[in-house]
């Protein structure tokens, strides 16, 4: 019973950062129709921002996280301008270009920090005990930040003009542009937010995962599973699927092992694709 409860607490932590990554990926896909294969590397870059600023240069942790968010958002803007905008009509080409970008980011990380794991000391030492389960402040911090960021994003998308434009572009880019919504502007904002969410997830979890330049691989696999199960193009679906997947994965990892958990996750995704090629929560077909 204790183990079950503890696993559930661990799963909540995993769900938090996975939701940030998946929501970002869905956002990029929703507006640009491109699957960003380099999304895992954006996470990795966010993590290395913390390695550099916090672990090496001893800036405050929060500042390093904020810098990671902004920096990775800017990387997203670069990707939008150089690749996704010229390739807007060709989703497969956009995806393949993002694979190229992934290789570039990986190599730059190797150049800057080497192939080995970056060590990031914890920013806080304390831990919380909830009904017998242990939750370190470091992990709690990820949960709180994820909830706050996603709530802020949700409010932003509901309330602001940009939010409406974003949703309009996601539904029908042509109709949106006829209504005077700038596709380029909307794509920039979506790309910045989408990339920044991946970056902040990497920055927040850097002390917990020991980043390597190749960490993006497992991240992108996770993100794919989540967005497929959540229905590509649905932000709410991505959050729900992130929670679902985090629980399944954490429990299978605890009671069997990590590789089996990955196999289960991939099989889950394949099953969803077979039964409903648009995902569990996705309404209509895209791409």
């Amino acid at each position: 019973m204790d183990l079950l409860w503890q696993t559930a607490v661990n799963a909540s932590y995993a769900a938090s950062y996975m939701a940030l990554i998946a929501v970002g990926l869905v956002m990029i896909f929703g507006v640009m129709g491109v699957i960003n294969f380099a999304h895992g590397e954006l996470y990795m870059v966010g993590a290395y921002c913390v390695v550099f600023l916090y672990a090496q240069e001893s800036f405050p942790f929060l500042l390093a996280v904020a810098a990671g968010l902004v920096f990775v958002g800017m990387v997203g803007l670069v990707m939008e301008r150089t690749m996704f905008r010229p390739l807007r009509d060709n989703p497969l080409a956009g995806l393949i270009a993002s694979i190229g970008f992934l290789l570039i980011l990986q190599t730059l990380a190797v150049f800057g920090f080497g192939r080995r794991m970056g060590h990031v000391p914890p920013s806080t030492q304390g831990k919380l005990e909830i009904l017998g389960a242990v939750l370190t402040y470091q992990r709690l911090f990820v949960i709180v930040a994820a909830v706050l960021l996603l709530a802020a994003l949700w409010t932003f998308l509901r309330r602001s003009k940009f939010g409406r434009a974003l949703r309009a572009c996601a539904q029908d880019a042509e109709a949106a542009s006829l209504q005077g919504i700038s596709m380029n502007q909307t794509a920039r904002i979506a790309m910045f937010i989408g990339a920044a969410l991946a970056g902040v997830a990497g920055a927040l979890t850097a002390p917990l995962v020991s980043p390597t330049p190749y960490i993006g691989h497992s991240i992108i696999v996770t993100a794919f599973i989540i967005i497929i199960v959540g229905g590509v193009g649905s932000l709410e679906g991505a959050v729900i699927a992130a929670v679902l997947y985090a629980f399944v994965h954490t429990f299978v990892t605890t009671f069997f092992d990590g590789v089996i958990a990955n196999i289960v996750g991939l099989a889950l995704m394949l099953a969803v694709l077979v039964v409903r090629p648009t995902g569990l929560f996705g309404a209509k077909e895209r791409a």
Binding site: T82, I96, G100, F101, L103, I104, T107, L108
Partner: peptide
């Protein structure tokens, strides 16, 4: 990998 990535893009 960097050069391959650039060539790909």
């Amino acid at each position: 990998p960097l050069i391959y990535g650039a060539i790909l893009i």
